[in-house]
């Protein structure tokens, strides 16, 4: 297993380099100029000098390699320095600088990450907590009223986009009923009971909308996996041993059914960090998704490149995690 993880990690490095090339190349080809938002009074020659100083006119390969060096080597080292309060080397190294904020992009990302992980993480956890029991009961009582309702709700939940359900939730629960605020206030600090209640209240709508969306697909998946296993011979064997129905269901059917489901869940983890592009806009959560959209609007190419690369790297990482988890859950999978 260790050998497998090591090998996969080794393969991940060229994969990430290739991904970085593609991301960098696509965004480099995109039209845009880092000086375009500067005042028009700046003369042409000065503009050109600014461009030159930012390295915009360097050959593509140079720009790419410099960026790779910054993202893959300089930024992690700076992160370690900050986390552990140490200085590595001279402490002087070039960083990926945002064209908008003029500061290191990583610092902006670190500012935005908590909001996103908080909302997305809760939606992820609630989604699983809803989806798995619903899937299990739907499969066990196939074609029952519960199953029919579950099927209907998850079909709707999956096919209606969150920008619609989100707005609908705002209209109903904020505008008409006034139960919850219509937007997420990231400046709110939880210091006492009333601010805690306010925090819970403002998180209900975005988490609710996103967890329903997550749960919709996952519950369908759990259901079909359960149905596949319920008709297996070993379930009959378990019953013939005199086991209680609950034990048959949980220990035998669910254990086998969760193998593909857990893999799917592991693959969704990067989404916690990547944020929800649209839902964050609707509830005005200034998280990663919001940052990505505004950077695209502002032509902040280094920010977009770095964010895209981070999401890609997380996806590669959790692909590996999914494979490892798969191997731990299913003894038939051998990696050596």
């Amino acid at each position: 297993m260790l050998w497998f993880i090591g090998r996969r990690a080794a393969i991940a490095v060229p994969t990430l380099v290739a991904i970085s090339f593609i991301i960098f190349a696509i965004l480099d080809l995109a039209p845009g100029d880092p000086t375009s938002h500067l005042p028009l009074t700046i003369p042409r020659e000065v503009r050109e000098q600014i461009r030159e100083s930012m390295g915009v006119n360097d050959p593509f390969l140079v720009k790419w390699l410099l960026w790779v060096k910054q993202v893959m080597i300089h930024e992690p080292i700076s992160l370690i320095e900050q986390l552990f309060n140490v200085q590595i080397g001279s402490g002087e190294r070039t960083r990926v600088i945002s064209w908008q904020s003029r500061g290191p992009v990583v610092e902006t990302i670190a500012e935005r990450l908590p909001q996103t992980t908080w909302v997305m993480g809760l939606a992820f956890v609630f989604g699983i907590l809803i989806a798995v029991p619903v899937g299990v009961i739907s499969a066990y009582k196939q074609y029952s009223v519960f199953d029919q309702i579950g099927t209907f709700v998850s079909m709707v939940g999956y096919s209606v986009p969150t920008f619609f359900t989100g707005l609908l939730a705002i209209v109903i629960f904020s505008v008409k009923l006034g139960w919850f605020p219509s937007y997420y206030d990231t400046t709110l600090e939880v210091t006492d009971w009333s601010s805690f209640v306010a925090q819970i209240k403002q998180i209900v709508l975005p988490v609710g909308v996103l967890s329903m969306f997550n749960a919709a697909a996952l519950s369908r998946f759990t259901r079909s996996s359960m149905l596949d296993n319920l008709s297996e011979d070993y379930v009959r064997t378990a019953r013939s041993k005199g086991l209680k129905e609950k034990r048959v269901l949980v220990r035998h059917v669910l254990r086998n059914s969760l193998i593909p489901v857990v893999t799917l869940i592991a693959l969704q983890v990067p989404g916690i960090f990547a944020g929800a592009l649209i839902t964050e806009q609707i509830f005005r959560i200034n998280g990663i998704g919001h940052l990505l959209i505004s950077s695209i609007h502002g032509g902040d190419i280094p920010m977009v490149q770095t964010l895209s690369f981070l999401i890609a790297a997380l996806t590669v990482l959790f692909n590996l995690v999914a494979d490892v988890v798969y191997g731990m859950l299913d003894p038939r999978i051998r990696y050596d």
Binding site: E232, D233, Y234, R236, T237, A238, R239, S240, K241, G242, L243, K244, R251, H252, R255, N256, I259, L329, D330, P331, R332
Partner: peptide, 23 residues
């Protein structure tokens, strides 16, 4: 359930699929 497995034992046709693969 006390009879199943306790007083009456069952052997099935296909031993390949009649045992739980992950236990």
């Amino acid at each position: 359930r006390k009879v199943r497995g306790g007083k009456v034992g069952f052997i099935f046709q296909d031993p390949m699929t009649s045992l739980n693969p992950v236990v």
